[in-house]
């Protein structure tokens, strides 16, 4: 079990990072010129409301005391109130998590469904036209802007073919799924470009490894060698690659949610910026940063669980 010892100790290393995240989000809102109470409440706030906010955040006290108030409020699950939606930011965020989470999951699953077969073709037929095509596509794919890819998919599948809805989310499960296909595909196409490159490299190494040679020597067919021995090994580093790219993936959802008018966290943040709803911007940024740290931690645990040779 000592391989899993890091599960206990790693969270301690998070503390300075979490501290830093809280300082950055705190400072961001304080950097806005003007009276913080007015900024938090909007221009039409009543004097009583302003007095309440001053007391809650200790706005007349020194900066570091204000920071402690900020932490205390955070500890109580209090991220302030949205000036636009008039409800608590944490509750607002809770209502918007589902589309974003579903979008990330759809993106990752679809990306694997695209990347594994392409990487397989490329790795098993090295030097052929198919291999070169996959490599050029995966190099070019990294440069596909997601907002443009999303718009092109809408033009093709919604406008020309009329197969899928243009935008929005929907109420029933089926409705939601149909609304997630194109946004998910947009994320997946960009992501699969990154995954294909790494998977191909892993598969090429795997095909030449001793494991593969030993399996062939035992008389296994090339197909079984590849799918049972090479592919699973090539997939382990992919989990880490996904974790490294999670920040980039979340950035992608922010843009894609705006393209497809998906009511997720990213769209909430962008609208918050336009309506100067600073508490919402701060809350979403904080949520995304903490989620990134946690996801990297979980990815480490999964990697260790999957590959007995790895020690962290």
């Amino acid at each position: 079990m000592h391989r899993y010892r890091f599960v206990l100790f790693r969270p301690l290393q998070f503390l300075p990072v979490l501290f830093g995240i809280s300082v950055v989000t705190f400072v961001l809102v304080r950097l806005i010129p003007g009276d913080p109470a007015r900024i938090l409440l909007g221009t039409r706030a009543t004097p009583t409301a302003i007095a309440n906010i001053r007391a809650q955040y200790g706005l007349d006290e020194p900066m570091w005391t204000q920071y402690l108030y900020f932490l205390k409020n955070l500890g109580a699950g209090e991220m302030g109130k949205s000036t636009l939606y008039k409800i608590d930011v944490l509750r607002l965020i809770a209502t918007r998590v589902e589309p974003t989470l579903a979008l990330v999951l759809a993106g990752v699953v679809l990306a694997l469904l695209i990347a594994v077969p392409f990487a397989a073709i490329s790795a098993r037929r090295q030097g052929t036209v198919a291999d070169h095509t996959v490599r050029v596509l995966s190099t070019a794919g990294i440069g596909f802007p997601s907002f443009w890819l999303g718009a092109m998919l809408i033009i093709l599948f919604s406008v020309k073919l009329d197969w899928l809805p243009v935008s929005g989310y929907g109420e029933t499960l089926f409705d939601k799924l149909t609304h997630l296909v194109l946004p998910g595909l947009t994320i997946a196409l960009s992501l699969s470009a990154v995954l294909t490159r790494s998977l191909r490299a892993g598969m090429v190494a795997g095909l030449q490894s001793d494991i593969a040679t030993a399996a062939r020597a035992r008389g296994m067919s090339e197909n079984i060698v590849f799918w049972r021995h090479v592919v699973p090994n090539a997939l382990v580093p992919t989990i880490n690659l996904l974790a490294i790219n999670i920040g980039w993936l979340i950035g992608g959802t922010v843009v894609v949610e705006s393209v497809f008018a998906l009511p997720g966290l990213g769209q909430l943040m962008v609208r918050g910026i336009f309506s100067r709803d600073y508490m919402v911007v701060q809350g979403v940024a904080l949520t995304f940063a903490v989620a990134t740290v946690l996801i990297n931690f979980v990815a480490d645990i999964i990697t260790v669980a999957l590959d007995p040779r790895i020690e962290l």
Binding site: L28, I246, I250, M269, V270, V281
Partner: peptide, 18 residues
Amino acid sequence: DVVLAFPFLVLMLSIISI
């Protein structure tokens, strides 16, 4: 470490919002 903890675009947008 702290800068990298934030998703790149999210931190960019937060700064631009200010």
